[in-house]
Design a protein around this nucleic acid. Structure first.
Lengths: 340, 340
DNA sequence: TACCGTGAGGAAAACGGATTCCTAGTTTCC
DNA sequence: GGAAACTAGGAATCCGTTTTCCTCACGGTA
């Protein structure tokens, strides 16, 4: 093959600067001892030619690939996508490239992807999942950080959203508005997100002498269930009667949006009669809801970023252990406060 | 460095199969002349060990990296995500890995990513965008396929959703239901998706002797605008009066959902009085709408897959030129048909 | 002036594992 | 029994950057 056009090699830079390739390498990597003038001349030549060192050749001597794998069990990506993007973004800063591997919830495919990443000698892997339920660890000869879905092995490095902090913020927000009769509506009862959020809400309310009204309601993660759950919570309440609750905490924005719709249908005013909160800050839901939802933004991009930081540190020989919580952010909108 | 544990090399397979590395290579690549029995034995050994050839070493002799870049201008990814996933999926089949590069709508960052991909000697690049509006081409010394957002250069290989086909299907569906007084509500008037869909709808209706009632309405891609647009379309219509339209075609599911909500608020029955259609088949919108939306699924995963196929062909020396249309699929639900 | 230390830059080896000639050994068929 | 065809191994090859020596020149010191 003739030399590929458009690709600039270190020898081209060397020729333009009138030095040897090794000098170029030293100049660009700030190693060796060179006269400042030479260094500058080489730098300028590299700049002029738009030289970017060949990553493959680079990894040859460096014995690392400057590449990490992003393994996602969740191809649909409602949650893992922001995590992946956050991670990718943080990696770019460190001159690291991201290999995408989506396994669409299929163990065989995942195994295949893992092998492929190992074959490519990635420096590390970030594993994300579809839910916050702990997942089986992968066994690979390089550092791994689990993001969003933690590893079942508590010694592995994981970063998960701090749902307890999120729900505590919700509870304190509601209490500060004087709401004390709070109902909880979750999604699937077999998932950590439903259960943990309930537990955190109950604990936060209890800490201020309040508690959840009635049983927590579990169903599915859909607007439909949000609507139905409102009927369950309100029971046979009729317009004019005193309401059994003055706030409903939903475990997702979808649920909360369905809830708002149903409350409106039944003539219950939000937030005057009943305050409503969601979770996730999925803007397309939270903003389209009437009224817009007070919710918790889990800041998944930051979570992904943090996972990338931990992975880079591990690659650098400073591995982390255990599960780290990534802080959420309360977003107050019209469904609890009257101002919008 | 001692041999990294967990990494299976060709020598390991060779040892297990009791042959030499070169024999393993020939067996797995179907080259050279080997006894079928030997081939089978090697294959089994490779299978047992989970051998995946080191991509770097492979690229040494093959003079290609077996890696392609997925350059996305759209980090949020409502549309580019399915495209990227579809592409990634198609690539995996060809033993190709996907390097993710998201540029979040920033030319400088994009340039940086492009350089990085070139430095990694990717075999090709798939470029996706946030909208279907044509985008400036990138200049790189390897094949490029533009997916979703076509290149401004008509000679470049692009794959875009066939909105005309989608809207034609919508028009024919409505006409088959006897609806002839059709209004159109688009999103942003400066975007191709809004404008082209309108043109296609108008043309399809005209082909059957019908035409769009009133002016096309353009606004923004939100449920809010969908609601407002209904008021514009219905004008000062009051319950009981004959309606000015018997169908409203919205350019997105979000718009259509807002439209349905507003129609219901005003006492107009969907689909009995007015049929409603959306676009995108964004399930979280289309299914949560009351009634569920008849819509067009652009099948973006297939589009991404097709882009990957074209790229692989181009890498293989058979480049494509011009823009290819990727077929959509009409999804009929309760907002036009009564059955659900 | 001779010697040594040091700074600057070049030459060449190392990096890595799959691939691919080329050749030797083995079978098969007249 | 010999020649052709087949099978499989040995060793060179692939790539561009990094890194390790080395050399050479220069200046300071004895």
């Amino acid at each position: 093959m003739a030399e590929t056009p458009g690709v600039v090699r270190i020898t081209d830079v060397a020729a333009l600067a009138g030095v040897s390739p090794s000098t170029v390498s030293k100049a660009l990597n700030d190693t060796g001892s060179l006269r400042p003038a030479t260094r500058a001349r080489v730098r300028e030549a590299a700049e002029r030619l738009g030289f970017v060192p060949d990553a493959q050749a680079r990894s040859l001597s460096a014995r690392r690939s400057f590449t990490v794998g992003l393994l996602s069990t969740d191809s649909a990506g409602r949650f893992s996508l922001p995590v992946v993007l956050g991670a990718e973004n943080a990696l770019v800063g460190g001159q690291i490239s991201a290999l995408l591997a989506t396994a669409r919830h299929d163990a065989v495919r995942e195994q295949h992807h893992v092998r492929s990443l190992v074959a490519r000698r990635v420096d590390g892997i970030i594993v994300t999942g579809r839910t916050t339920d702990p997942r089986p660890p992968i066994r690979v000869p390089m550092p791994v950080v689990y993001a969003f879905a933690p590893s079942q092995d508590p010694d592995d490095a994981s970063v998960v959203p701090d749902d307890a902090a999120g729900m505590t913020a919700v509870a304190e927000h509601l209490l500060s508005l004087g709401r004390t009769r709070v109902a909880y509506v979750g999604g699937r009862g077999d998932q950590a997100a439903s259960v943990q959020r309930h537990a955190a809400l109950a604990a936060a309310l209890a800490a201020h002498g309040a508690r959840i009204v009635g049983e927590p309601q579990f169903g599915e993660w859909s607007e439909r269930w949000g609507r139905l759950a409102v009927d369950v919570v309100l029971g046979d309440h009729r317009a004019g009667d005193p309401l059994p609750v003055d706030a409903i905490v939903f475990a997702s924005d979808q649920l909360a949006r369905g809830g708002c719709d149903r409350l409106r249908d039944r003539g219950v005013r939000v937030p005057e009669d009943v305050a409503v909160t969601g979770y996730d800050d999925w803007e397309v839901m939270a903003l389209a809801s009437r009224p817009p939802l007070t919710t918790v933004d889990p800041q998944l991009d930051r979570l992904g970023q943090r996972a990338a930081e931990l992975l880079l540190a591990a690659i650098d020989g400073r591995p982390a252990h255990g599960t780290e919580l990534s802080p959420p952010r309360l977003v107050v909108r019209g469904s609890t406060a009257g101002d919008s």
